[in-house]
């Protein structure tokens, strides 16, 4: 029986450093979500508020993982930042659509589009 609990993030500034890429890898569930919560909280405290979350290597997400996004989006936007998602697999897309994420978050096909989205007005991606 294979274990499905590995989760880690890789953080990387891009461009002039005002945008931060957060790659998600593995399984984001109720056990691993607090770690991702800490990552976003530390980025916010460090003044990095323009975030691209790349989900291309994310194998699984449950409601606890999605709740992390929900819990952070308003503070990030309140200071002019945003959290943009990209690279979602068809199944993760299905889950986020069940919770109405496309009405709340900008979701792009890939990292390039997500980075470009910060140069556009919300809703044009």
């Amino acid at each position: 029986m294979t274990m499905q609990h590995e989760f880690y993030t890789h953080i990387q500034p891009v461009g002039d450093g005002t945008i931060t890429i957060v790659e998600l890898h593995g399984y984001l569930d109720a056990y691993t979500a607090p770690g991702f919560d800490d990552v976003l909280a530390q980025l916010f405290e460090g003044g990095q508020t323009r975030i691209v979350v790349d989900c291309a290597e994310l194998d699984y997400i449950s409601s606890a993982g999605l709740g992390v996004f929900m819990g952070h989006i308003e503070p990030f936007r309140s200071v002019g930042g945003d959290i943009v998602l990209c690279g979602l697999s068809p199944r993760i897309t299905a889950i986020v659509e069940m919770l109405g994420f496309p009405h709340i978050f900008r979701i792009c096909a890939n990292r390039e589009q997500a980075i470009a989205a910060f140069g556009q007005t919300p809703g044009t991606t």
Binding site: S62, S63, A64, L66, G67, V68, M70, G71, I73, E74, I95, M98, L99, G100, I104
Partner: peptide
């Protein structure tokens, strides 16, 4: 309330 709340989505997903 689901929208923008940190929790409360699990049952919604399961029932879906």
């Amino acid at each position: 309330p689901v929208r923008l709340s940190r929790s409360g989505h699990g049952l919604l997903l399961a029932n879906h």
